[in-house]
């Protein structure tokens, strides 16, 4: 009972704010509603017994990545016109693609979860999992982990280089 209630609560929160992310005109509002969606998803992670990911989602996604978004939105507060006309010119093509994706999703849902060949009942042995996720990360997924950290380093250096204001050539004197 309680489990169902929390699921519907978080699911409704996630879907409503996701709709608002897409429909709202102001980019700051979009960011705020995206944060709400991410937090609701974090709640669902917790319900799925993934407490480490719950924390990672909040610290990294909401506390790190989304802060960057909010930051950039505040720094580049231009394009008043964008708030007035929000949909782009390719809307008919886009509609077609969206309908195709929706058809795919409906087809997958119609097949039902039996088609996935999932085990009927989830095992209860998946908690508490911080330690086992860590072990998994540093044993079986050692190489991907290292590659991911190099990727982050490269991205960081790239962002710093891009963000650096180039000096105009004349002002060097």
């Amino acid at each position: 009972m309680v489990e169902q209630f929390t699921f519907y609560f978080f699911a409704a929160l996630a879907v409503i704010s996701a709709v608002l992310v897409v429909t709202v005109r102001n980019a700051v509002y979009s960011a705020v509603f995206l944060i709400t969606t991410l937090l609701a998803t974090a709640g669902i992670f917790l319900q799925l017994r993934a407490e480490f990911l719950f924390v990672v989602q909040i610290i990294l996604y909401v506390g790190g990545i989304m802060v960057l978004f909010v930051f950039v939105v505040m720094l580049v507060d231009l394009d008043v016109a964008l708030r007035q006309v929000q949909f782009n010119r390719q809307k008919w093509v886009a509609l077609l693609v969206v309908l195709a994706v929706a058809g795919q999703l409906v087809f997958a849902l119609a097949l039902g979860s039996e088609a996935l060949g999932l085990p009927a009942a989830a095992p209860e042995s998946l908690e508490p999992n911080t330690e086992s996720v860590g072990l998994r990360l540093f044993e079986s997924y050692m190489l991907p982990f290292e590659i991911a950290s190099i990727l982050l380093l490269v991205a960081m250096i790239g962002a710093v280089l891009l963000g650096k204001r180039q000096k105009p050539p004349r002002s060097e004197a």
Binding site: A50, F52, L53, V56, Q57, L60, Y61, G64, I65, L68, F69, F71, V72, L126, N129, S132, V133, R136, L137, S140, Y141, P144, A148, L151, L152, V154, A155, M156, G158, A159, V160, L162, G163
Partner: peptide, 23 residues
């Protein structure tokens, strides 16, 4: 647990993408 490890990697990719993209 592999699924959870993948989520970790997806979040890392998202962070890298956000850093470069926002720059």
């Amino acid at each position: 647990l592999s699924g959870q490890v993948y989520v970790f990697f997806v979040i890392i990719v998202a962070a890298a993408e956000a850093a470069v993209g926002l720059a």
